[in-house]
Amino acid sequence: MRIAVCLKQVPDPATVEVDPLTAALDTRRLLYIASPADTAALEVALQLAGAEGHVSALCVGPPAADAVLRLALAAGATEARRLWTPFLPLQAPAQTALLLAAWLQRGEAPDLVLCGTRSSDQGSGQLPALLAEFLEWPVVCDVTQITLEGDLARVQRRLDRGAREELEVRLPAVLAVEAGIARLRHASLTGLMRAERAAIPVSELDDLGLEPADLAFPAATTRMVTPPRPRTRPIFTPDSTRPAHERITQIITAGVTRKSGKVLEGPPDQMAEVVVEFLRERGFV
């Protein structure tokens, strides 16, 4: 079983500080980690590959991203490779996918490509689909469970509102897993030392048979990401016409009152008048 895992280096959210006035990130204080969904993918890959399997870890990033690949090597990945070009724009899922696909199409192709569904920093979630498109492979995102049966993968996928979908995918395929479905194993000391000593090979555009012009994707550019607007929450204010003790009761019960009803008795036309009066009072008619 040959599995490739794509990893991304992201800022550790614990070190992200935003200036409240300018909304600028304080980049001097940032520390970097592997994106949590990607480390879950790595652990799943190591489990699926087993002892005799072959797991290669890939990362598109600058030299500092070697740390992520060393993490993978320490945990037990067979090999690691960093892909990089200075021509990469800042946020570039399409270009990243292109580099990864170019590498994966050279030499012996893996049976399975695993990655995180979305990175914890920019989180566009586009990479798995774009990668599958370049490879012309099937893709499943939001994966929570994978079992392999020959060249068939049984996959469980998370849908909205807690629903789950079970699918079968024929390999080779790209499977993008959710963060938190597996916790990366604690590396052994031997693994850690091996990873620290390993030289991480790098492939640039030339090695991948690409030109800088291939990286131009004018079709879609993300200009801005706005966080969802918080829902307006009505603030409870007690009815000021009520006496003080009732207002206090209203406040401490947070305005929750029991449902109450009123049973009318009498001749129909009188009851109809009361109902109309009730509705008029409350502005329904």
Binding site: H186, A187, S188, L189, T190, L192, M193, E196, R197
Partner: peptide, 28 residues
Amino acid sequence: FLLNAAVVDEVLWEDDQVVGVRVRRDEG
């Protein structure tokens, strides 16, 4: 050779001589 994230759990002995350390990891 610098190794980060390595917590040392104990000192290892042979006769009355310290001969190494045990790191809190497998094969440590």
